[in-house]
């Protein structure tokens, strides 16, 4: 009996059978926690004892929290400056899109920074910036007479960390564009060349339109990378000096789990704000993908 039910309906049942394990895991660890975080943000909770309902008090507190605004401002700086990796990656990709001997190895080595952990990238740049003996510190000292301790100065610290983040991000964008350039139609480029197009004009009117899929992915991964800036901040400065390099994800972690006490509810409220910002971008990406899917 049950065998024949399966036989008769297998085309209808099979997709759900195949989806079940993945969907279940995804629901338990991603979908439900998103809702739970929103719920927890209305409570005062230390993670162990009883949760206490406090309504919107966490959000009210956020409005007057200077540290929150510092983090938010830094997130915006991250987002804007991270976008530099898109043109920078494109430039390097164009520079490297040749076929001299050993080019394959050169390209791989340029891509290198993306493969290593952000923790390692953070340590590498801490060493690069280190006052007294850091390479950059000495370079600045050579040029201007006095060195700058980038990571100890609240004016430069965020930019210093972003520069470290840009290093692997540019490598990632570069590889996207190298693949894209590989598939640019040679006929169109030759035809445009016969028409006298070259340099910037060629890039803007002929090449870039063909690179649109690569640009889309580059922008998506760059936005996500910029809003996931936790690792570098944590490793390089631990939010300092005086909290000036915090970003929302780091501040959230600090509130929820650090030695200053476990404020899960307040942390969740910060996370909800970050999530709301991200949702703007996610909706945009999904809307574009939706259009591409339904057009076909």
């Amino acid at each position: 009996m049950s065998v024949s039910v399966w036989k008769a309906n297998q085309r209808r049942l099979a997709p759900w059978l195949f989806l079940a394990p993945g969907l279940l895991m995804f629901a338990i660890y991603v979908i439900i926690p998103i809702c739970q975080s929103m719920w927890i943000s209305f409570f005062d909770w230390d993670g162990l004892g009883e949760k206490q309902w406090i309504g919107t008090a966490n959000y009210v507190e956020l409005v007057d929290d200077d540290a929150f605004y510092t983090s938010l401002k830094n997130n915006v700086i991250w987002l804007v400056l991270y976008m530099l990796s898109v043109p920078a990656g494109l430039m390097i990709a164009i520079f490297l899109n040749q076929t001299i001997t050993g080019m394959r190895l050169y390209k791989s080595l340029f891509f290198f920074p993306f493969v290593i952990s952000q923790v390692v990238v953070g340590l590498i740049f801490s060493w690069f910036y280190a006052p007294g003996f850091g390479l950059l510190y000495n370079l600045i000292e050579l040029v201007t007479g006095t060195g700058v301790a980038v990571l100890a100065d609240d004016r430069y610290v965020t930019y210093g960390i972003i520069a470290a983040g840009l290093w692997p991000q540019i490598a990632y964008v570069m590889i996207l564009y190298l693949t894209g350039l590989n598939n640019v139609s040679p006929d169109q480029v030759e035809a445009a060349r016969l028409d006298g197009a070259k340099g910037w004009k060629m890039l803007w009117h002929v090449v870039l339109p063909q690179l649109r899929p690569a640009t889309f992915i580059a922008v998506v991964v760059t936005v996500i990378g910029a809003l996931r800036s936790f690792d570098l901040v944590s490793v390089m400065t631990d939010g300092g000096p005086y909290g000036s390099s915090r970003v929302l994800s780091f501040y959230m972690y600090e509130q929820a789990l650090s030695e200053y006490g476990y404020r899960m509810g307040y942390g969740a409220a910060i996370a909800v704000v970050l999530f709301a910002i991200m949702m703007v971008f996610i909706s945009g990406f999904i809307w574009k993908m939706w259009r591409d899917e339904t057009e076909r």
Binding site: R11, R12, A14, P15, L19, G22, L23, F26, Y29, V30, I31, I32, P33, I34, Q36, S37, I40, G47, V220, I224, L227, R228, F230, L248, S249, M252, Y253, A256, L257, M264, G267, A268, I270, A271, V272, L274, F275, M278, F281, I282, F285, I286, M289, W290, E293, T294
Partner: peptide, 30 residues
């Protein structure tokens, strides 16, 4: 492979979930 009504919905749920910032998952997952 299968055309069913909520196909794209499920697909985009996976895609969107993949973009979510980690802190929104942190407290409940921990």
């Amino acid at each position: 492979v299968y055309q069913f009504r909520s196909n794209l919905l499920v697909f985009f749920m996976f895609v969107a979930g993949n973009f979510v910032p980690f802190p929104i998952l942190m407290v409940p997952v921990r």
